[in-house]
Amino acid sequence: MSVFSIGMNVNADRIEQQNVVSVALNVNGEKMERQIEPRLLLSDFLRDDLGLTGTHVGCEHGVCGACTILVNGESVRSCLMLAVQADGCEIKTVESLSSKDGSLNTIQQAFANNHALQCGFCTPGFLMSIESYMKNNSKQPSDEEIKECISGNLCRCTGYSNIISAIKEAYSSKNSQ
């Protein structure tokens, strides 16, 4: 018999159905609640349960960074987190970046201007790593700092140089605003 408990003081949250847990979270500004298997990876939850397929899965062992999203504003590999662990969290995915009218945000636009993507598979992960970095570092970073910021994301197409240019451009256009 498998048992689920979510802290003995929160019986109300306990789901009686075997091996199913409830998660309530905020994804891209929308509150939601879902019943899921505890083993469900957050990456699969976003993609399969919520249809947010912009978050890509590249290695499922926490190296490639394609599945990077923001959890409470911090960059996290969604393949290394269970969906149930995101209970109560605020999640942001690549789908949240552009504005409602569809226009690209600063970093997305800088990627387009600098040809910072080719096949585009790794791109959402880069965008989310950079999004978090830019929120936490307002000062224009050095080349070394930029490289370190994206060193947890693998890109097999671009050779990174245009991604570095895009980050520089994003910083200058942000600072000139």
């Binding site: 979510i6 505890p38 083993r39 269970l82 149930v84």
Partner: peptide, 17 residues
Amino acid sequence: MKPPKFSYHRPGNYAEA
């Protein structure tokens, strides 16, 4: 590459843990 089945426990304090 998906985790096998398990039961999940999330204690709220460490006595529970």
